[in-house]
Design a protein around this nucleic acid. Structure first.
Lengths: 191, 191, 191, 191
DNA sequence: AATGAATGAGCTTTCATTCAT
DNA sequence: AATGAATGAAAGCTCATTCAT
């Protein structure tokens, strides 16, 4: 390999790729070095440890996700339709790349506190907040009943993501679409 | 170490312990050997591989859980109260030993199919089925609205478990109690 | 397994079998125990160590071989024909069970002196002696030239066995038949 | 151990050494690492597996041998004297380092096909070919009778090597010198 | 005597991290 | 800064041997 300028960004993207491809606990620094086309030593120049690098990779994946969701909602004004769109987009993303969603939740559940978990949690909280605000808007517009928005948002997010992930490999679990439609029906006012 | 009788059960329990204490992917055969106070070789005499042993440990944890839940529901007849009790008991168990619940879901989400995941899934499916039947009973008795029982059960189970796990370390997430009460209110008929 | 009388002979035979089947360095005490249908502990009651047992197994194989050769030569009186028969029979035996011949020479060549090697050597020496006497008889009867019987015998035995073994897997090496015929022609007197 | 430059060659030489000293099946990667004064990990950086490394070690030993023999024959033109020299040199080498010859034949005879055996075989075939060509030259020059060159060459090589190896520890076996002189006498034309 | 579960030293291999260049 | 070879601490697993029954 030639002497070259190494960018942190490139390493992080490679890390995200390898995480998605191999699964978080199969990642090796060699993999990342190869994927990024950067010497192993250079990685250790830019990052203190494999762990610190993984955290960046995880954060990158989560940010990508939120970014794409926000973009998809840009032109929708009705809270109810916004909510449906958000859940549908999320489902689509899970379908396309279940592994990285999976990784996110796996992390969330990774035993024992560690920084990686914090990063994952951060993302879920942001995501729940987003949903919760949409619901509040819907309540204000009388599209939704007077429910506890945080509670319902949490339920919707967790159920939708997990059912999507599980459904991916297990057809016996009800589809996330069926579930979120049922939940939205329950919270909707009779028109 | 002195020559002693080694029981498979003891090894499995030790495995469950170590899984809960260290996290599934940090478990080493040495740990288990030490925890069970049994020579490493003896473990390999009773189990073909570390993986096979881990599966037994996971199954043990899951079975313990279902067993305890069933026991708690024995004397309750009203479906609605049964459902509330089930979720409450489940929450209590999570509070006492969040690690093993966590491990179960972590497994469920463990990247790439493997037998361990199957075992976890088995448990969740059984659990969802149980909840789903309680809901159906409730619908028959007009305690609940005409909802899609499977969908609501899946949502309840996943939300309750996950919120419980997350809440354990993150107070910003709404409590599982708040969530399941909201959901039950939504599906209940007006009295 | 039931409580039973264990015979040393049975264990040795099983050992010989396993050696022939798996190759000397792949043999495990478990294999022998299974083949002999005898508990592992019982083997250690009768034999001090795996090594000692292997020696018995090797000796058994070698003795079987010499025994069968002697039997085949019983009714032949002409030294020359005796010699040809001996080499032919030996070749046949190699063809049928190359592994145990192979094992014998492998042992002979096993690095560093050890008892197993002595046993193997013992057999080869006996074998060379037998051939050498046949040659001496042949010289006395003027069937063979005045050669150094020991030297020729050694050459014949080593060449025949090794060429047989090698030939078994490598067709590029001349066949043992071709070689021993050439050697016998060289030492024979013109009739 | 300090950070140092590790050469593949040094590892291979160390491997050859350890093979010669301990015997092929007693070699451990730790031994090699110690002999080469190189970290175990470094060995695995340069070689995919212990097996691959052993093959290199074996090849190294064999090549050394052929190289030295060819060198010794360079200035001799008479086939007969060439042959005698070759066998004498070979004997000398066996005397100096019987273990590595021994290893070569042990491998040849190692039960069941494997790459290591192939490597050994390769060497023996080359060696037999060399001898066989010398004999053919001798026949052309009427130094030798009209014998089957391949057959005699095989016999000479196998006998000489093996007798040398065996003789090394067992004085009862005729010396290789005695044997090859006898064989050469047999194939030589009367002057 | 016979049994087979129990023991633990020892093996190969992986991989995060270090460091000479 | 960047490189990639070098390091060595684990890890999973095997199997000769021991010993309670």
């Amino acid at each position: 390999m030639k002497y070259q300028k190494v960018s942190k960004e490139k390493i992080i993207e490679a890390t995200a790729s390898v995480i998605a491809r191999e699964g978080l606990d199969k990642v090796t620094v060699d993999d990342i070095s190869q994927e990024a086309d950067v010497a192993k030593g250079s990685i250790y120049f830019h990052f203190d440890s494999k762990d610190k690098l993984l955290i960046e990779g995880i954060r990158y994946i989560a940010e990508q996700r939120v970014f794409r969701i926000r973009k998809a909602l840009k032109n929708i004004s009705s809270p109810k339709r916004k909510l449906i769109k958000l859940l549908a987009v999320s489902n689509l993303m899970i379908k396309k790349d279940p592994d990285s969603f999976l990784m996110n939740y796996a992390l969330l559940l990774s035993s024992h506190k560690n920084i990686k978990r914090e990063v994952s949690l951060e993302y879920v909280q942001k995501y729940i907040l987003l949903v919760s605000e949409i619901i509040k808007d819907g309540i204000a517009l009388r599209q939704f009943k007077q429910v506890n928005a945080e509670a319902v948002a949490t339920s919707l997010v967790l159920t939708n993501d997990l059912a999507g992930i599980l459904r991916f490999s297990e057809k016996q679990i009800p589809s996330p679409q069926k579930i979120y439609k049922e939940l939205i029906k329950l919270i909707s006012t009779r028109k």
